[in-house]
Design a protein around this nucleic acid. Structure first.
Length: 726
RNA sequence: GGACCCGUAGCUCAGCCGGUUAGAGCGUUCGGUUCACAUCCGAAAGGUCAGAGGUUCGAAUCCUCUCGGGUCCACCA
């Protein structure tokens, strides 16, 4: 054995050994207890980041249960990550001077498919490099045909059960990326914009969006506002930039009399609140901004007998981007004497695209919505009745808050890279009825028998398919897997996707299978830099997990991620911390060398302690270390069961370094020189047992040391029985 | 406006279902090169446990408030 631990050489081979031996592949076995975790599928096209390395805690649970003798399954997958991946791909196109508009749908899809599959292997090998004992024989991709079938099936079921509807309402639309989003994807940021006070007939109104005024359909005031009481229900002529228009004053209790002038213009096509209001008062929804984010005045320009002055204005605005048009209009308002004042320091929260940062434009667009209340209520019941538990416990309350506040879920995306929605429209019937299938194209319209059917061009929100991941992954492998491993034992992921993913899995899992998808939700914190700052490319503080594994060993990286921070809290990470754990690896290595050296020398002297019971020792030091080992066994077992991996890791570190190496080994040196059989027996027993306890945390080095100590007849640690306290 | 988390040694964090001299990693200082390890060993310095009040025989730990950081949610145009 080398004086220094060389992880580069040791870590290389063990994974292939484990994988080839089939240790990662459980059988459904009635005698055994099933234990299953479905890996949160990383994006197929992207390299792993440090956050993914947190899946270490899943490997800890998996290895622990495997050693306990459970039928243990850790199922890997890859996510097509719809919009996310298309976004990345478009960036790539951009660099090549192209855009998504240069290709038809099929070509674009094929190009992204190839792009994803070129990169997919990276992610998988990186998971292997970190020692994650995943059952690759059961690996699944979110775009596998069998998965798509299941997703279609669920969509159809929702449709048949009346839990799905199509509605033309305002969606959160990113005009840059060309797709709508659910409420969760909108990122609200504080911004300072001018608030314009403009003359509006006999009134003055305040708005930050003068460009939408051309499609105002009413004026709203608080019914209790004395100032406007007499105007309620009356219609006024209002002079605008394109001539006079007529508008009625309607009551709306939501209007805050203290904001602006207490009177609000109503633009149903471009504001969610106004949309609702418009619905109530039967106002028309007529957009003036198109899906490319440009002003559309064609409705005005197509009119006959327009005043040339107004025509010129409309032509000037037409086709301009929102912000540019707004500036032009403000100038014209000034010229017409309609702008009364401007509050330049008006701060408000504005919805932006979480990916590209562009302002989200609420636009009317027909989309598929899931009625979320019936699904969420069942999910709430499962959580409240503790059928689904949370670790750390505080996330239960947060999950309940989310589940209580969910609104109907828009699952349509105007993205090519995804699962196409299995809904068709008959072009002959010209009605609004949709034909929803389980995926197969309908041959003809069931009503008119027409053959002119057109499929909805949209794809599913990725979370709609990944929300079905726990049962879909098990079903597609074999019916036996689903019956045996479902509901899965633990769902472990980052707390940041609790609403996006975990809540949706609970809702869709319960809906599709009638059972909870997992028994415990276990949430880890976000990995941050040494100062607790978020890691980001722009900050330049990103730590790459693979280069850390290469430098210090995957074991060291794994240990660093669980050590020293209460599980569930954010994890500050630094190279120093990983280096510290590399040093711990080296300490283990040298304990191993020490033990091995003495075992060999005993053997040469024919003093080898064959099957000597360690319990019989009367030596005080032996008794002490054995007592501590018992305690350690209890602590590690308990803390892993309780999802407090940090405590287990710390107990192991403390015991191995400061009890075993610093104290016991120092104390036992003289006895070893005198070939005291009992001493070597205890030392070996204690070390091997603690290696077993450490194996889930640091699989590579422990496996190697175990082999070094008795290469001839020792079973690999990965399948060694978990130590128990008698 | 609502919810949650955090403020403990220079730094990053444990401890917080109350009870011996408040711990760890890294850092600092001092001393160690013989037969496991300098990726090491031994020793040391360093904390009004954010602040105030309360409960208690006893509080870093429970309760209330204040201050300071962070995160998330909410249709004020």
């Amino acid at each position: 054995m080398d004086k220094r631990y060389k992880h580069q050489e040791i870590e290389k081979n063990w994974y292939t050994f484990w994988e080839k031996k089939g240790y990662f592949r459980p059988e459904a076995n009635k005698v055994k207890t099933p234990f299953a975790i479905i890996l949160p599928p990383p994006n197929a096209n992207a390299d792993l980041h440090l956050g993914h390395a947190m899946y270490t805690v899943e490997d800890i649970m998996i290895r622990y249960h495997r050693m306990k003798g459970d039928a243990t399954l850790w199922l890997p997958g890859a996510d097509h990550a719809g919009f996310e991946t298309q976004f990345v791909f478009e960036k790539k196109l951009q660099k090549e001077g192209k855009s998504r508009f240069d290709f038809d749908r099929e070509t674009l899809y094929k190009m992204i498919w190839d792009f994803v599959h070129e990169n997919r292997g990276n992610m998988e090998n990186q998971l292997r490099r970190l020692g994650f004992s995943l059952d690759w024989s059961r690996q699944v991709f979110t775009l596998d045909p069998e998965i798509i079938k299941i997703v279609h099936r669920t969509f159809k079921k929702l449709h048949d059960d009346g839990l799905l509807y199509r509605d033309n309402r305002l969606v959160n639309y990113c005009t840059k990326d060309g797709t709508g989003f659910s409420d969760l994807e909108v990122l609200y940021v504080e911004r300072t914009d001018p608030l314009y006070y403009m003359k509006y007939g006999p009134f003055t109104i305040a708005t930050s969006r003068p460009e939408t005024k051309f499609r105002d359909t009413a004026l709203a005031v608080n019914p209790d506002d004395k100032r406007y009481k007499s105007s309620l229900g009356k219609t006024f002529e209002i002079m605008g930039l394109l001539g006079p228009v007529k508008m009625t004053v309607i009551p709306d209790p939501e209007v805050d009399p203290d904001f602006g002038t207490g009177i609000m213009k109503v633009t149903p096509a471009h504001d969610p609140h106004d949309f609702e209001l418009g619905h109530k008062f039967n106002l028309s929804v007529t957009p003036i901004i198109d899906f490319a984010g440009r002003m559309d005045f064609s409705w005005f320009l197509s009119q006959k007998n327009i005043d040339p002055k107004y025509r010129a204005r409309a032509e000037k605005y037409h086709g301009k981007k929102v912000k540019a048009a707004r500036d032009l209009m403000v100038e014209d308002l000034k010229a017409d004497g309609l702008l009364i004042k401007t509050d330049e320091k008006y701060t408000h929260r504005i919805g932006t695209c979480y990916k590209c940062g562009a302002t989200i434009e609420p636009l009317p667009l027909p989309q598929w919505y899931i009625k979320i209340r019936p699904l969420a209520d069942k999910a709430i019941a499962s959580v409240k009745s503790k059928k689904i538990k949370f670790a750390p416990k505080r996330y239960e309350k947060i999950a309940l808050q989310w589940l209580t506040n969910f609104r109907d879920w828009n699952i349509s995306r105007q993205v090519v890279w995804g699962i196409r929605i299995p809904a068709w429209k008959c072009l002959d019937c010209r009605n609004d009825e949709w034909i929803v299938t389980d995926g197969n194209s309908p041959s003809s319209c069931p009503k008119c028998k027409g053959q002119n059917l057109e499929q909805d061009p949209d794809t599913f929100d990725t979370w709609f398919s990944s929300g079905q991941w726990p049962f879909a992954t098990l079903e597609v492998n074999s019916k036996k897997d689903f019956g045996y491993f479902y509901p899965t034992s633990v769902m472990e992921t980052g707390y940041d996707i609790l609403p996006w993913w975990v809540c949706r899995m609970i809702m869709l899992g319960l809906y599709a299978t009638g059972e909870i998808p997992f028994q415990t939700v276990c949430l880890h914190g976000l990995v941050r830099d040494a100062k607790g700052q978020k890691m980001s490319k722009s900050r330049g503080n990103v730590i790459n997990p693979l280069s850390m594994a290469d430098l210090y060993g995957a074991d060291a990286l794994r240990m660093a991620l669980v050590f020293g921070t209460a599980f569930g809290n954010d994890v500050p990470m630094s190279e120093d911390k990983i280096r510290g754990m590399r040093n711990f690896s080296n300490k283990l290595w040298n304990i191993g060398r020490f033990v091995k050296m003495h075992r060999e020398s005993y053997r040469n002297q024919k003093k080898y302690p064959e099957n000597l019971s360690v319990e019989k020792s009367t030596n005080a030091e032996d008794k002490k270390i054995l007592g501590e080992l018992t305690k350690l066994t209890e602590v590690v077992t308990e803390t892993v069961e309780e999802f407090r991996f940090d405590k287990g890791a710390e107990a192991l570190y403390e015991f191995l370094w400061h009890s075993l190496a610093d104290k016991y080994i120092e104390a036992v040196k003289d006895r070893l020189k005198n070939y005291d059989r009992q001493a070597l027996a205890v030392l070996t027993h204690v070390f091997i047992t603690s290696l077993k306890l450490l194996h889930p945390f640091m699989p590579f080095i422990t496996e190697e040391l175990n082999k070094q100590l008795s290469p001839e007849n020792r079973v690999p640690l990965i399948v060694s029985p978990w130590p128990v306290v008698k």
